[in-house]
Design a protein around this nucleic acid. Structure first.
Lengths: 162, 162
DNA sequence: GATATCGTACTCGGATATACATTGTCCGAGTGGTGACGG
DNA sequence: CCGTCACCACTCGGACAATGTATATCCGAGTACGATATC
């Protein structure tokens, strides 16, 4: 059970976007280059974020992706849901209802204990992810930002605005 | 991010084993037949459980699988770990250390915030799974056991013991 | 009748195909900027 | 000098291959049971 690496890619990309001035975005190329990632594949993942409404896309020259909401209102769970899909990892197919000794009148209204336990566990996981917002992490990144990094970002942005 | 269906198969199988008299086991064939599952594939998953030390295997006629510990001492996490492997779903590859504007002297002693957040979330998930033992679920199953089901199990076991 | 031995049936274990999902790449669609042209 | 128009470069979006992992199956290795022959 492993998560798509796209989650890590887009999470870092979103943190970067969150550190930018409000309303300003960057093209997928720049987001990929910033962490030395494959541009085309990064673009694909950003599309998923756009479909999910986490980011907004602006086409044409000077376009790119920018956050659709305030960083405080975007959680890690939003990103996971956009990339991985919101379906639970444990998919109960009700095998308890199969086999030679299943009574037709067996009451299966309540989910089986195994299913219930996994649902509780994934809920705890989801709640933890929902409690972490981009704003929290962007602050950490901004604190460590070097002049070098600021310069590159400014160049990208001003290059856009020029 | 989806979990192997083998987890569901083996979880139900282990609950069944937990409901049996202490020390008694069943062959993989019987475990599969009980829930109308592919016997060969069930056998493969039971092997993983045996390697992980969750169940013990007994070869030869009258052999099979039996729990290696008391049901109270086997948790859902043990089964997930045996089937899926204990590695975290989110694999941080430290992409923050890549790219054009990474300072060589940047301190990366502490894990990045994204990595830390996912680690916390998965920990919550793991703790929840560790808190559920086979004994809890076996009791639920035994309470609902029909005479039909009891008869089939007795037949399998006595067929073994005869 | 008891015991040792051989054969057989049963079960696990790992090696081997297959299907599917993820990963990775490319080209077309759409849009804003820019320069040229005309008024 | 200003406004309009057409062209171009840039960016997103979805369609298309390559790779890796999970799924599914089969056959060989090993063991206990039982039958048989012998003492």
């Amino acid at each position: 059970m492993k998560m798509s690496e796209g989650v890590e890619w887009t999470a870092h990309a979103c943190v970067l976007l969150a550190a930018l001035p409000k309303g300003v975005g960057l093209p997928a190329n720049a987001l990929a280059e910033f962490h030395a990632l494959a541009p085309a594949y990064m673009a694909k993942h950003m599309q998923a974020l756009a479909r999910a409404g986490v980011v907004e896309s602006v086409r044409g020259a000077g376009g790119g992706y920018r956050l659709a909401r305030a960083p405080r209102d975007i959680s890690l769970w939003d990103i996971v849901e956009a990339i991985e899909g919101g379906e639970p990892a444990f998919r109960c197919v009700e095998i308890r209802q199969q086999g030679p000794c299943v009574t037709p009148q067996g009451d299966f209204r309540k989910p089986c204990e195994i299913h219930a336990a996994f649902a509780r566990a994934e809920n705890a996981w989801r709640i933890e992810l929902k409690s972490v917002s981009l704003a929290d992490m962007a602050a950490e990144v901004a604190r460590k930002a070097t002049p070098q990094k600021r310069a590159l970002l400014t160049q990208w942005i001003t290059g856009k605005l020029a």
